[in-house]
């Protein structure tokens, strides 16, 4: 029995070790779409005061923040960035920012209907068959701001604004990365040349080496984006709940909104996890007791 326990302990250790491997792998392997790199090397991401409510085992999205973030997205980001994997109805589904118990079907949700109607969606006139733009319905997807990628590049100086549907999943740091990027448009340090049409961001996962004239060992962190600082001034958006719309507040809210958009089932998932793990723990206990009972007369 003692040896069995040892084996079990060793097994657990091995399992933990094996589980740690991918985490370490992830730490070291940088994401790199569009020449991006994880801002590693002592360059910590910014975090809002109080941290992110959706992190941790029992964390849930701050609904008010997601609601405000939805407004920031609609009024600021949506002019260049799509959200093509989301439908308006997602906003009113359980776990969504505008879910209300009185509207179990999100298509009845008046808030969601109102938001959908603020967007113009390509469609076909049911009477004439003419193509045209129509106010969005809850079942519609968020529209792409550009007719196609080539057009998007032409009007954005060659850069394609990425779709934001899974942005928080697609960058190391998730919401923290988005928050830092929003607030990372700092004046470039002396010695750093910023090309016309480019903007220096201290948190953008890029590289500054080729534009840096100083000691290469101390090149500034971050990189250059074609995107101008989107939340450059306080008060850009007027929040419906009266929260002062400082830059930090807007950045935090839009990051929370995009975290939700990337993983709208997170709350359901964590909640179910508690019951599944509790069930398995009890089952493990019963199985162990049965094991001891069945083997009690067998030397092994």
């Amino acid at each position: 029995m003692r040896l069995n326990k040892l084996a079990l302990a060793a097994l657990t250790a091995l399992a933990v070790g094996a589980a740690a491997l991918p985490v370490i792998a992830q730490e070291h392997a940088a994401p790199a779409a569009g020449g991006e790199q994880h801002a590693a090397g002592g360059h910590e991401l910014l975090a809002p005061t109080g941290g992110w409510s959706h992190e941790g085992y029992f964390g849930s999205y701050d609904t008010n923040s997601v609601q405000r973030g939805a407004k920031v997205y609609r009024e600021v980001c949506s002019s260049c960035h799509g959200l093509k994997l989301l439908s308006f109805r997602n906003l009113g589904e359980p776990g969504g920012p505008f879910y209300e118990a009185r509207w179990p079907n999100p298509n009845d949700n008046l808030v969601v209907k109102e938001i959908a109607a603020m967007f113009q969606i390509d469609g076909v006139d049911p009477d004439s068959g003419d193509p045209g733009k129509f106010p969005g319905k809850t079942s519609d997807r968020f529209p792409n701001p550009y007719p196609n990628d080539i057009y998007a590049r032409v009007v954005n100086g060659g850069a394609l604004p990425p779709d934001l549907s899974v942005m928080a999943k697609a960058r190391h740091g998730g919401a923290g990365y988005i928050y830092s990027l929003m607030l990372g448009f700092v004046p470039p340090p002396a010695g750093l040349t910023v090309a016309p049409g480019q903007h220096y961001n201290a948190y953008f996962a890029g590289d500054t080496a080729s534009s840096w004239s100083g000691d290469p060992r101390h090149k500034p962190p971050g990189g250059f984006l074609a995107m101008a600082p989107p939340l450059a001034t306080d008060g850009l958006v007027t929040f419906d709940d009266g929260t002062p719309s400082t830059k930090e507040q807007m950045a935090r809210d839009v990051a929370t909104f995009l975290a939700w958009a990337s993983d709208p089932k997170m709350e359901t998932r964590k909640k179910m996890g508690v019951s599944v793990l509790a069930y398995l723990a009890i089952l493990a206990l019963l199985a162990f007791v049965s094991y001891r009972r069945i083997w009690r007369n067998v030397e092994h």
Partner: peptide, 18 residues
């Protein structure tokens, strides 16, 4: 279950969400 419910993306890579 701990991975499925609490770290579903820990074993993957962020780039695969692009």
């Amino acid at each position: 279950a701990a991975f499925v419910f609490y770290f579903p993306n820990a074993l993957g890579h962020a780039d695969n969400s692009i």
